[in-house]
């Protein structure tokens, strides 16, 4: 059997040195196959962004192994061009990652130009193709980012990432800044792209519904430790850790969660909530009861 597309083994990430050292990730391992989507879930500061940034080459791990097609994946500066192209990233705030002075056409064209793709006419055709793939209407090509909605900006960022024909797309909270309706539309787009391009994805998100819709596997990280990992069908329907349970309750039925007086008090006090305290809420959610059914 050939090796997986991406293999991550015992990845440890530190920031700072000596006495100031902070361990952001205490060891994480997984395989990613072509076309496979893994969701990475956790609070701000949990280490989930550090994990995907290491894969993107933006952070150098302290120890552990990253293999792409069985080859060691070095930090970004040492990655040969064809390796760089294979892993592309879309960030949370498209406003900050798109040059405000450039038009959509130029933004999507830039990676093509930098990598020497075709001539001007060929690049223009390719940009039109990428805009079509990301469901951006052709007349937006002459607009600047500030003339676009949040959803359109994120589509431009996705089109730019796809220009490199990556095999792995990293979406770091790419939906979080969008309103719910737009989140639905963009997550549907990502699902279509994954199917049509056999694109593997690392999908960092809090949104349990898009995790459910898009991901095959999920890795739940809490304070730098992987607390739960496995198939979405397993982890989301049978969550073991208190954090995963609370996250599901918060996303799916916050009304039920706060209707439990003991749980509401612990939450108000900012105390750690035990797995046990969340059993009642889990039973409600497992029974299929959503917001509207809460009593």
């Amino acid at each position: 059997m050939s090796s997986p597309l991406l293999q991550i083994r015992d990845l440890v990430i530190d920031y700072g040195k000596g006495a100031d050292r902070f361990r952001a990730l205490h060891g994480c391992s997984f395989d990613l196959e072509p076309g496979q989507v893994m969701a990475v879930v956790g609070e701000s500061g949990s280490g989930k962004s550090s994990l995907v940034r290491a894969v993107a080459g933006l952070v150098a791990p302290a120890s552990g192994e990253m293999l792409l097609d069985g080859q060691v994946l070095p930090p970004l500066r040492q990655r040969p061009p064809h390796t760089r192209r294979m892993i592309q990233m879309v960030f949370q705030d498209p406003g900050a990652s798109l040059n405000p002075l450039h038009r959509v056409q130029a933004i999507i064209e830039e990676p093509l130009r930098v990598t020497g793709y075709g001539d001007a006419a060929g690049r223009k055709r390719r940009v039109a193709e990428l805009m079509d793939m990301t469901q951006l209407s052709a007349d937006l090509a002459t607009r600047r980012p500030r003339e676009l909605s949040g959803g359109q900006k994120q589509r431009v960022a996705i089109a730019r990432a796809l220009a490199m024909e990556p095999r792995i797309l990293i979406a770091d909270e790419a939906l979080s800044a969008l309103d719910f309706t737009t989140q639905d539309h963009v997550s549907r787009l990502l699902s279509d792209l994954r199917r049509d391009l056999n694109l593997a994805m690392l999908f960092v998100s809090h949104d349990m519904r898009s995790v459910r819709r898009m991901a095959d596997d999920v890795c739940v990280i809490e304070k730098g430790h992987v607390v739960e990992q496995g198939a979405v069908s397993d982890v989301l329907y049978n969550p073991k850790s208190a954090y995963t349970r609370l996250l599901l309750a918060a996303a799916l039925n916050p009304r039920a969660a706060l209707s439990d007086p003991r749980l509401a008090e612990a939450l108000e006090n900012g105390e750690a909530v035990s797995e046990d305290a969340l059993k009642g809420v889990m039973d409600i959610i497992r029974g299929g009861a959503l917001m509207g059914d809460a009593r």
């Binding site: 719910f180 639905d184 949104d207 519904r209 799916l252």
Partner: peptide, 8 residues
């Protein structure tokens, strides 16, 4: 469109 608004 709410996360918990549609059947999970």
């Amino acid at each position: 469109h709410a996360p918990g608004g549609a059947r999970f």
